[in-house]
Design a binder for these strands. Structure first.
Length: 410
RNA sequence: GGGAGGAUACUCAAGUGGUCAACGAGGGCAGACUGUAAAUCUGCUGGCGAAGCCUUCGGGGGUUCGAAUCCUCCUCCUCCCA
């Protein structure tokens, strides 16, 4: 509890409530902090992790960063890896039944997850458990006992299920067990608080009921707003490919951040960065979204790669995108083996060159790029798909705005 | 157990014998423009060294000069009644 000693309970509460969408029951955070203090023990703050994706993105980082705040105040992060529940699939926000993951996929994801988690969390105050350790051990009688604690009506009235039923989409029995499993996790690890995205409200509240039935104090539920993806519409997620990964290179993060719609700038500043409230407020009605967005993109890159890398990413963006210059560093492509000389054709066939560079998946796709005027060598546009070229060694091949390769001709 | 409906490209979704490599929308890509990889507009979006050819509409078999479209069997999916 060393971190917490310097601050009053009131101050701690303020920090912890910042950026939070909802606390259930409202107003219970401060009393809980007092209990922890008087009992002189860290709170156990639970976060369920669904290992269905292998990349942690800014959306999930919102919750992780909140968890980190708890850690900095001396509390314990209790991560529950849903290795067992991943084989069910969280129905939250889903309009369809989820595909089931294989054991191997889950293990691969978990492994990659753990490395990324500690870019945000403090490993010394983190406890990791796998819910398969207890859920897989349950006997059928235990499952019945668990299921007997909730009614079908309450389960089916939740939004996701109700909508599906109305749309004549299937709802499977095992999906209704998902919230119960997650609630059982809370019982198992004796969570004081459960963090989650706002779409986790129902699941987290089930945990309260189960804990109460088990004679525990029901966990406080803390819900964070969902970060919208770079498309500006859907929730950020890997499957929609609208995410910014915390492990991505700074240039990628910067560029992706620049591609969010202007209206999302303030939300991103608030949820995904440490920007002070004044800056967030200023960004809300900004006259110059470009400047605000650039500042945001820098903050994001700096958070995961440091200030210097963020500055470089900004410069990279300005030169490649705004001034359309070739970047300093780009992959090399040895084009020498592609050179032909058979009387009919002399040089490298441009279509093959594009395909070899990996800029197109097929020759047909390469032809399209060429015909659309996307391809150039050393700034000279090539629009004839039958063209053969003899570029100088070190010439720059470009396809579209962002794909570059330096040609090696010997 | 009984009845009804469905499976089309990345997704949704038209098409019910030739004019179908398959309408449309979303997504993606590209170009123009710009303040950005935003917005907007336009184009492209199965493969092949490509005026032509090849493969595709859940799977197999069949009818036909010709099938995504008709028949048949199979697989899978959904809904309604009980």
């Amino acid at each position: 509890m060393d971190g917490g000693r310097a601050l009053t309970i009131e101050q701690q509460r303020k920090i912890l409530e910042r950026g939070v969408e909802e606390i259930l029951p409202a107003g219970e955070l401060e009393p809980l902090l007092r209990i922890a203090q008087s009992e002189n023990r860290p709170l156990r703050v639970k976060l369920g992790i669904d290992p269905t994706a292998s990349d942690i993105h800014l959306g999930f980082a919102v919750v992780l960063r909140k968890l980190r705040q708890f850690q900095d105040l001396g509390h314990t992060a209790c991560l529950v890896i849903g290795d067992f529940t991943a084989s069910i699939g969280d129905p939250s926000g889903r309009s369809k039944t989820r595909p089931v993951l294989s054991r191997a996929e889950i293990e691969r994801n978990v492994h990659s997850y753990e490395q990324q988690l500690y870019r945000i969390l403090d490993p010394d105050r983190t406890e990791i458990s796998y819910n398969g350790d207890w859920l897989a051990e349950m006997r059928f009688a235990d499952v019945i006992q668990l299921a007997s604690q909730y009614t079908a009506a309450r389960m089916l009235e939740r939004d996701d299920f109700a909508k599906r039923i109305e749309d004549q989409q299937p709802v499977y029995i095992h999906e209704t067990l998902y919230p119960l499993c997650q609630g059982q996790d809370s019982v198992q690890i004796r969570a004081d608080i459960e963090l989650g995205g706002s779409d986790q409200k129902f699941n987290n509240l089930v945990g309260r009921d189960l804990q109460r039935n088990a004679g525990q104090r029901p966990q406080l539920v803390m819900l964070m707003p969902l970060l919208v993806g770079t498309d500006g519409v859907e929730k950020m997620s890997k499957s929609l490919d609208n995410y910014i990964g915390i492990d991505e290179p700074p240039e990628e993060q910067f560029g992706k951040a620049m591609s969010i719609p202007d209206e999302q700038i303030a939300a991103y500043l608030e949820l995904a960065t440490d920007a002070p409230p004044e800056e967030i407020e200023a960004a809300r009605g900004a006259q110059n979204p470009m400047a605000a967005k650039t500042a945001l993109a820098k903050r994001v890159a700096a958070l995961y790669h440091g200030r210097e890398a963020a500055e470089r990413a900004a410069e990279h963006f300005a030169s490649t995108v705004r001034r359309r210059e070739a970047p300093d560093e780009m992959p090399e492509l040895n084009a020498a083996p592609l050179i032909e000389d058979n009387g009919k054709n002399k040089g490298v066939w441009i279509v093959k060159l594009i395909a070899a560079a990996g800029f197109a998946e097929s020759n047909s796709a390469a032809r399209r790029l060429i015909q659309q005027g996307a391809v150039s060598i050393d700034g000279e546009r090539i629009t004839d798909a039958n063209a053969h070229v003899s570029p100088a060694d070190g010439a720059v091949l470009k396809a579209g705005k962002r794909r570059f390769a330096r040609l090696v001709m010997k």
